[in-house]
Structures are given as C-alpha cells and as structure tokens.
Design a protein around this nucleic acid. Structure first.
Lengths: 183, 183
DNA sequence: AATAATATTGAACAAAGTGTTCATTAATGA
DNA sequence: TCATTAATGAACACTTTGTTCAATATTATT
C-alpha cells in the first residue's frame, strides 16, 4: 500500500476519532473531518464512500487491533485458542484495553457506539463458540447454546464499558475477577 | 394538550418508527418524516428541534410505556415496588414486550438503538437499586454494588434483545426462566 | 353559536452539507 | 529516470436544513 494512502487513511481515522469524542456523530460533517485531517474533499471520497462506511471501517480496524494484540501476547502461546483457560483470554483483552489504545476507549465510551460494541461482542461470540466446552457448567447445560454464548460475550463487553465509565481505576486483574464471578 | 398537537406528535412518532425499521437513521431526513406523517415542514419544527431530539423523546415515551404498563398490572399490586419477588418484575416486562407494543420491538431490533437500549437499561438500574436487597446473594456481596446492578440490568436488556432477534418464538415464562438462571 | 386562542399550512428563503468531476501537481516504487 | 498512482482545489448541481410569515383551520371556552 502506498505510503500516501496509508497516511491519509490514518489522518482521517484520527480526525474522526477525535471528533467522535467531542460531539455526536450525527453532527459531524465530512467538512469537519477533512478540515481536521487537513486533506482535500476529493481525497476523502476517494477513501470512503460515506461517513457510515468510515465508521464501519474504523470499528473493524479497532476490533482487529484488540484481537491481534491478544494473539501476539507471548503467554497466550502465539494463539488465542491455545489459552490454558478462558480467564486468560479475557485478561489479555483487558490488559490491552488498559495499556495500548485510547482510540478504543474513545469509541467505547462515546455515544452512538452500538456499532463498535456489536463488533466487539460478535467477535467474542465467535471465539467463545469455538471453545465452548471451556465454558460449560451446570448453568450452561440448561440453556440454549447461543443464548449462553451471547450472554458471556455481552457481559464481558458491558464489564469493559463499566470499567471505562469508571475511568479504568481498577486493575485488569480486578476487573477480570469481577467478570469471572459473574459467569 | 390540544388534540391537533397530540395527533401531529403521534403521526411524527409513527412515521419515524416506520422509517427506522426500513433504513438507517442517518439516511432518514426530516423531509422523509413529514412526507410519511403527512404534515407541513414548519409543523415538524414546531414540535421537535432536531431529528436527534425526536429520537430522544420517542425513546423516553416508549420507555415509559414499558414501565407504566408494568405498574398497572393487577398482580403487581398497583406498584412495581410491591412485587413479591424480582422475578415477577421481569416477567411483567417480558409479557408487555410480547403482547402490546411492536413499536418497542422495532426500536430494540433496529440499528442505532443504543440510545433506547440505554434508556431501558438505566431505567432498570434505578428500579433494581431501589430494591437491591432482593437481589443479594453470595455473588453480589463480593462485587461493587453498582457493578452488580449494572450487570443485572444489561443482562436483562440483552436477554430481551436475544429474544426479539429470535422472533419471540419462546414464551415470556421461558425467557424469564433463562434470565433468572443467569443471574 | 360566537369568539379568542392556538395549531397547522405552504411557500419561500439563505445557509450548509453532499457527492462528483477534472485538469494540475506531487509523491512513490521499481 | 519514469511510469504510475495519489492528492489537490476549485467548481458544480443537488439535497437537506432550519426559519419566517401571512393565511387558514381547528380547538376549547363562553
């Protein structure tokens, strides 16, 4: 990929994320974005069809960040599915949220973040489905599988959201414990 | 309140809800709404400052429907707080969702419903806080109170959402059982 | 039934935003 | 060095927004 394209794309993402943390998405205009990103109007439309697509791609990118970083953590044996137990999986994600990426925080804590929350949740659903046996207990056997999977994923997402709303005062380990007590 | 005002307000809500179930909120224009509601442009702006405020007030209204109906159910002794047990509270809401109001379904199942989900959740949080002792168990005592309250509320909302996504195939009683097993 | 108050109408309006075009310029990779 | 590709900016038609106002219709009240 051309360096120029990459830079422009990142400038747009950065400008958009900034604006998202400042005001409601419906009042952010393309003109706002290109002014902040310091690019031409035509350039914006060469990259993104509409504002909606921009949001979608930003969500996808941040979503990948979360899980890619989890995959790369040494203690996860280079692959998330090789986690010894499911509590490691969640702890890795929590650590990543705390340390690396405040773009994620902005998206998770801003209004109109349903889209990103859904990406986050649905990504987890897939992971959990693939190692569902790890999560089996008395509870889960009496419930529809997809209902239980959905429950774990959305509870985790809600936990992260709660944590962010509390300004990440607690440690990842504490939050992980809270979460594990719930499920 | 003047009959005309009431009719116009309802026509706008109805048109907007229809449109919400048809397309993304960001592509719904004020012109779409007034055409569907068959009212004049000036009339719309006499009622709502912007589209965002319209959504906000619609959410508030539907949210009140849910809880007002719960309050009015005979078996709740005319007041939600007098529920014998918390499982009745949730069952009432589930029954209401199933029977009465498909506007609620549309809002809960459409995209960009974060706002309404939040109203729903936050309303529950307040109810649960006021009778938190009912929910106490081994789990809850080891967790921050607001964390646990938030957990119950968002798990219930997620449960309702799952149910709607499954087209309400299950009975309110079944869903209530599922939910109670989780918490 | 008459009246005063109020809601709706429709047309018109400036201002702002959208999405596209294109010839020109600049940066890139090979 | 050079062919390729990306960014530019100005211009464009078009849509959407939010407001104004005089005219009209509906309402609650008496």
């Amino acid at each position: 990929m051309d360096r120029r394209q990459k830079k422009t794309r990142e400038a747009i993402f950065s400008a958009f994320t900034q604006l998202l943390s400042e005001k409601n998405i419906s009042s952010i205009t393309v003109s706002d974005i290109i002014e902040r990103a310091d690019i031409g109007r035509a350039t914006f439309y060469a990259h993104f069809e509409t504002k909606d697509f921009l949001l979608k791609e930003l969500c996808e990118e941040l979503f990948c960040h979360i899980f890619d970083s989890t995959l790369d953590t040494p203690s996860s044996h280079n692959h998330i599915f090789e986690c010894d137990a499911h509590d490691e999986l969640f702890l890795h994600i929590l650590k990543h949220v705390k340390n690396n990426d405040n773009q994620i925080l902005k998206l998770l804590s801003c209004q109109n973040n349903e889209l990103f929350l859904n990406y986050f949740k649905n990504g987890l659903v897939k992971l959990i489905e693939s190692q569902l046996n790890t999560f089996e207990n008395e509870k889960s056997k009496e419930l529809p599988k997809d209902f239980y999977t959905n429950f774990i994923a959305s509870t985790f997402v809600q936990t992260v959201k709660w944590w962010i709303d509390h300004e990440l005062n607690e440690s990842p380990e504490e939050i992980n414990e809270y979460f594990l007590k719930l499920i």
